[in-house]
Design a binder for these strands. Sequence first.
DNA 1: GAGCTGACTTGCTTATGCTGAAGTCAGCAC
DNA 2: GTGCTGACTTCAGCATAAGCAAGTCAGCTC
Lengths: 159, 159
Amino acid sequence: MEDLRDDRDSWSSENCSVARAMDIVGSRSTVLIMREALLGTRRFDDFVRRVGVGEPAMAARLKDMVAADLLERIPYREPGQRTRHEYQLTRKGRELLPVITALRNWGDTWAADDAGPSIVATHHDCGQPVRAVLRCAAGHEMADGDIDIAAGPGLIRRD
Amino acid sequence: MEDLRDDRDSWSSENCSVARAMDIVGSRSTVLIMREALLGTRRFDDFVRRVGVGEPAMAARLKDMVAADLLERIPYREPGQRTRHEYQLTRKGRELLPVITALRNWGDTWAADDAGPSIVATHHDCGQPVRAVLRCAAGHEMADGDIDIAAGPGLIRRD
DNA sequence: GAGCTGACTTGCTTATGCTGAAGTCAGCAC
DNA sequence: GTGCTGACTTCAGCATAAGCAAGTCAGCTC
């Protein structure tokens, strides 16, 4: 099987999942909101305080993310309080965990504070640290040199 | 061991690798340039054509990425041509592959074209498709529910 | 019904990233 | 030297995202 990279100009990257993913989660604040949401944050004022952006920006970002179906706006009521809304991760949002984890891993290695990482994700069952790694369907773990690029069904060829 | 999420307000996310990673690779075009670089693109005009941004934007982005040590600007000379420069991935840049792969996986699932993915990464040895997955140091693969958040050395506690 | 509070919204200003069109510059071919 | 070409740079101009400050609004408590 031929590696697609060998003739990069014969196909277009018009239909690119990376680009479409970046259109949805491409801004710094959206990613930081996802980080907080994955850590369990759900309320507007907690997001504002923990992410460190202003209220107007947060309101706009959350609205976008609900529209993009990363978060769901759900009413709740604490005793003695009036009804409010919280932002819960959807499945689509939760599945960004490997992206955020890969980013955190990379940041820990290449953009770290002198003190080291502030948080470490660990496997609940065995306590070992968790990383995002590349793995094939047969179970092999690999580095970038072991990877071929093959055509998928959505590939657009140039004339 | 206590899960840090249980008391999210007792620690700050000031020292956050995700935020610092986003400061470096947080823009759409930077990620798309990384995609192309990982597919083997090295020359200025190829980046412009394949990423689909204008020359001024590309020049600015490449300059930033060289300054951030994601790419290295290296002189080369083709026979009968004058000396030029190409942009080669550094190790720091190459190690973004899991991030880009995780983004592509997510985009393929949640932001896909009707036709399906345009390209598929496969393991060179066995031909099976490659994905970014979460794995602990003991070798277990896991979903988000199986993960605890523990304190790292760089954690900043609030008073 | 008055007050309070969390969750926004509005308005204004700044910073960044992009676009398109046009100009510059280096250095090999001739 | 002159021309050519790839790799940029310069110059408006626009869109988006952010900041801060102030205003609104719903609905529960009293």
